[in-house]
Design a protein around this nucleic acid. Structure first.
Length: 298
DNA sequence: AGTTGTGTTGAAGA
DNA sequence: ATCTTCAACACAAC
């Protein structure tokens, strides 16, 4: 699932691949994903705009366009943006560019659920940004750049987990307001800290050796410091490894990340803990599965 | 073949 | 206010 590291990987790739290209056309077979306007209006308003810069906040992607507009995309669970340099209609007969060891990632089943396509042009060069989204939960919004940060879902976001403003003092302030809640719940709340989802909350707490059900008020400063350090450490490591593709996440070349190879607890219930050897526990917490070692994590 | 689990987010219900 | 449940949707695994 795309959490902060996966979204950061996509944003970095997009900044390398599509800046200075102009939107020439847009196609969709699922216009319900476009939340604030009809398909025709969306097409009219996006055509002819040049891509200036791509940035993110938490798991939200913002593609800034010329003329003061921004394309805001949330990948939700199964969304990924694929950048192709050949006409998608001809892709089946021509070899793709995402090849590695004879394998074309664009051909993977997980990349076949394409519901939206932006055609991009820079002089004679053409690119296609294809949005694969199996479960069709993703969100697309086109609005004035100045209005994006005022959207309710953006305005309510907490501090980004990797931003400079997310200091130890900041996490202390945030947690001071959530005394009676479990740390495993609080870490995932986007209104508090933006970017952490179900995979990384388990991995962060394992790294910090903190039990997910521990109440925030019962975390002394030293243990809170451990949690803080583990948030930064795990997210940065996951970015270096281009995210987790335990299930369906893929990068803009259609290729998987590699953090799933170093997962310590996520989806490893029933297996032995690499630290102490006891069996990893799985529980439901906040309507989602959480994984932890009941011996290592106190 | 039907049921369940998957997980992000927002809305609705208690 | 705060918590829980459901709904959006598709598919793999049982």
């Amino acid at each position: 699932m795309p959490e902060l590291p996966e979204v950061q990987t996509v944003v970095s790739d997009l900044n390398k691949k599509i800046v200075d290209y102009t939107v020439a056309d847009f196609w969709s077979d699922w216009p319900k994903a476009i939340k604030n306007k009809k398909l025709v209006a969306f097409q009219q308003e996006i055509k002819g705009r040049k891509i200036i810069n791509i940035r993110r906040l938490g798991k939200n992607i913002f593609i800034d366009l010329s003329g003061g507009k921004t394309l805001y995309i949330h990948l939700k669970m199964t969304g990924h943006l694929l950048i192709k340099s050949q006409n998608p209609l001809a892709a089946s007969r021509v070899s793709g560019q995402a090849k590695s060891k004879g394998h074309n990632y664009f051909d993977d089943k997980v990349n076949q659920y394409i519901h939206h396509i932006w055609k991009l042009k820079k002089g004679k060069e053409e690119l296609w940004m294809e949005f694969s989204d199996m479960r069709k939960f993703a969100k697309i919004v086109l609005d004035d750049t100045s209005r994006i940060k005022e959207l309710p879902e953006i305005k309510k976001l907490g501090v980004d987990a990797l931003s400079p403003e997310f200091t130890f003092k900041k996490i202390q302030e945030i947690l001071a307001k959530k005394k009676t809640k479990a740390i495993g719940i609080v870490l995932m709340e986007q209104e508090l800290i933006a970017g952490i989802g179900n995979i990384y909350r388990s991995e962060i707490l394992f790294d910090a050796k903190i039990h997910p059900e521990r109440k925030v008020e019962k975390l002394p400063a030293q243990e809170m410091q451990q949690v803080y350090k583990s948030i930064k450490k795990i997210l940065k490591q996951a970015i270096k490894m281009r995210g987790t593709s335990q299930s369906d996440y893929r990068d803009t070349s259609g290729a998987p990340g590699s953090f799933q190879k170093v997962l310590k607890v996520y989806r490893r219930s029933g297996e032995k803990c690499g630290r102490c050897g006891i069996i990893i526990t799985r529980k439901t917490m906040g309507q989602r599965s959480i994984f932890f070692c009941s011996k290592c994590q106190k």
